[in-house]
C-alpha cells in the first residue's frame, strides 16, 4: 500500500486538505487565545453557525456558484455581527475576571448557540453540495483529485500569508502583537485595548464561521457538528503554541498527517494517539512548538 505512488500522493493531498480546512478555523482560535487569553469553547459553535448560514443562503439562492460564495461571505458577516454583540455587551465585562469565569462564559455560549440553532433550523441534518465550478476532479498527472479539496489546499497557505502580512506589516498587526505580549503597557501607551480585543474576537469568530461554511460541503450539517472540531482545534493550537500563527499552521499539518497516516498505520487506535501527542507537547514544551515561554509562568 505504501509503495503505491498514486495511493501515497492521494494520502498526502488528503492530509493537506484536511489540515488546511482545520487551519482556517484553528488560526482564528489561536488569535483569540493569544490576544484575549480566553479558552474559547464556543469556537466550534461559531463554526456550526457558519455551516448553517451557508445552508440557508444556498437554499434561497439555489445551488449555484453565486449562492455558494455569497453564503460563505454571509456566514462570516452574520457571525461577526453576533460576535460583536456578544463581545460588547457580555464578554468585555469579563476581561479582568478569573480565567474560569471566561471559560465558563464560552461554555454557556455553546449551550445557548446549540439550542438557538436547533430553534432556528430544527434538529434535522442538512447537506450542502460542492459549488458547481468545483464539483469535479482535476487531473494531476499521477491521479485525479477533487477540485474543491485542491482549492482548500491552496486557500490555507493564502490565508496564512494574509494573516501574517496583516500581523507583521500593518499598524494593526503591531498593536495586536503588542497586546499579546503586554496589554497593560499597550493601554498605558494610549491604545484603546478594548477596541483591539473586540476586533480580534469579531474577526476570530467570523473566520471560524467561514471555516464552517467551507467545511459544509464535505460534512453533514447537524446539531452535533461542533463537538469534535473544537477538540481538533485545541490540539492544533496546543501543538503549535498558543497565539502563534505559523505554529497553528504547522500544528494543523501535523494533525492532518497524523489523522490520515495514523488511521492507515494504527487504524482505529489513532483516536488515542492524538491525545497522547497533545499531552506530550504540553509536557515537553507547554508553550508549543512555535510559541514562546511566558515570563510570568511559575
Amino acid at each position: 500500500m505504501f509503495t503505491n505512488p498514486t495511493f501515497m500522493a492521494i494520502q498526502v493531498l488528503n492530509s493537506l486538505s484536511l489540515a488546511m480546512n482545520l487551519f482556517i478555523i484553528a488560526s482564528a482560535l489561536t488569535l483569540i487565545f493569544g490576544v484575549l487569553r480566553i479558552v474559547n469553547f464556543a469556537h466550534g459553535a461559531f463554526y456550526m453557525i457558519g455551516a448553517y448560514v451557508l445552508y440557508s443562503v444556498v437554499g434561497s439562492f439555489g445551488e449555484t456558484d453565486l449562492g455558494f460564495w455569497t453564503g460563505v461571505i454571509a456566514a462570516g458577516v452574520v457571525m461577526a455581527a453576533v460576535a460583536y454583540v456578544v463581545e460588547r455587551f457580555l464578554l468585555s465585562r469579563l476581561y479582568d475576571k478569573e480565567h474560569l469565569l471566561q471559560l465558563l462564559f464560552t461554555f454557556a455560549l455553546v449551550l445557548i448557540i446549540k439550542d438557538a440553532v436547533k430553534m432556528i433550523w430544527g434538529s434535522l441534518q442538512y447537506s450542502v453540495s460542492y459549488p458547481p465550478m468545483m464539483s469535479g476532479a482535476v487531473n494531476l498527472g499521477i491521479t485525479y483529485y477533487p477540485t474543491y479539496l485542491l482549492f482548500l489546499c491552496i486557500l490555507g497557505p493564502l490565508v496564512a500569508i494574509g494573516l501574517w502580512l496583516g500581523l507583521e506589516k500593518t499598524r494593526w498587526g503591531r498593536i495586536l502583537r503588542a497586546a499579546r505580549l503586554d496589554r497593560e503597557m499597550l493601554g498605558a501607551l494610549g491604545t484603546d485595548v478594548t477596541k483591539v480585543f473586540s476586533a480580534v474576537f469579531v474577526i476570530g469568530a467570523a473566520m471560524a464561521a467561514i471555516g464552517g461554511a467551507l467545511a459544509a460541503p464535505r460534512v453533514a450539517v447537524d446539531p452535533g457538528m461542533d463537538a469534535l472540531v473544537i477538540i481538533d482545534c485545541f490540539i492544533i493550537v496546543i501543538i503549535g503554541g498558543i497565539g502563534s500563527l505559523w505554529g497553528s499552521f504547522v500544528g494543523a499539518l501535523i494533525l492532518g498527517f497524523l489523522t490520515v497516516f495514523g488511521t492507515l498505520i494504527f487504524r482505529e487506535w489513532e483516536i488515542v494517539l492524538v491525545y497522547v501527542m497533545m499531552i506530550g507537547v504540553l509536557l515537553v514544551r507547554p508553550w508549543g512548538l512555535f510559541g514562546q515561554p511566558e515570563a510570568e509562568r511559575h
Binding site: L94, L104, A108, L111, I112, D115
Partner: peptide, 19 residues
C-alpha cells in the same frame, strides 16, 4: 426539549452577575 438553553442562560447570568 430546550433545557440546554435554560442551563446556558443560568450559567451566563451567574458568570456575569454573581461570580
Amino acid at each position: 426539549q430546550y433545557w440546554p438553553i435554560v442551563l446556558g442562560t443560568i450559567l451566563l447570568l451567574i458568570v456575569m452577575f454573581a461570580p
